[in-house]
């Protein structure tokens, strides 16, 4: 690990631009949208690159990293909370990923509540789920009726990442 003080890491504009172009392409091809406020988005991406240099993983810029990848797997960008937050609020916690509705200007982007459990609750959850086996009935499986893509999550994605069919064209599979 680098021994630099935490405030000494730097990220160049070139690195940010390269990352932005790559991510934008990847995100758009899988049915998501980056915030079209390019300045805001690039400042978040700069922070993600910075966190990768600091901690060795691309920790969420809007959450305090614990400098422990195993403890922070849930907040590596894109985080575990992105899609539920997109479903409920049309944006991820940072405002980096947004829904089509906000992307098309039909809804305004607003800050949202933190979905990640508190440090105390995370400890409790860890104790409860020592087996790591998910009950098959706890998470619904959705099937894209266009291409057959299957995913297990609370709601289908806004757009099928394989064939770009819309959410309405998914059916519950299990």
């Amino acid at each position: 690990m680098n021994k630099l003080p935490i405030s000494d890491f730097v990220v160049s504009d070139g690195e940010v631009n390269q990352y932005y172009i790559k991510l934008k392409k990847q995100v758009e091809s899988s049915g998501y949208h980056l915030n079209p406020d390019v300045e805001f988005t690039k400042s978040l991406l700069k922070s993600i690159i910075l966190n990768d240099k600091r901690y060795g993983y691309e920790s969420c810029p809007c959450r305090l990293a614990g400098n422990d990848k195993a403890e922070d797997l849930d907040i590596i960008c894109p985080c575990y909370y992105r899609d539920p937050d997109l479903d409920d609020y049309g944006t991820c916690y940072c405002g980096l990923y947004i829904s089509s509705e906000i992307f098309n200007g039909k809804k305004k982007l607003k800050p949202i509540p933190e979905r990640r459990p508190s440090p105390e609750d995370r400890e409790k959850l860890k104790m409860e789920s020592t087996t790591g086996i998910l009950s098959s009935s706890s998470i619904p499986v959705w099937r894209c009726k266009v291409c057959g893509y299957l995913c297990a999550r609370d709601e289908p994605p806004e757009i099928c990442p394989i064939c770009t069919a819309e959410k309405e064209r998914f059916e519950q599979f299990n």
Binding site: L44, N51, P61, C62, A65, G95, P111
Partner: peptide, 28 residues
């Protein structure tokens, strides 16, 4: 957090309102 967009907006707003305040970047 020095890395957070909403934190940055908060500082900008406090400064637009010309309020006296103290801040600390916990990630640093």
């Amino acid at each position: 957090l020095s890395t957070c967009g909403w934190c940055r907006k908060t500082r900008m707003l406090l400064e637009d309102l010309n309020l006296e305040y103290d801040y600390i970047y916990v990630d640093l």
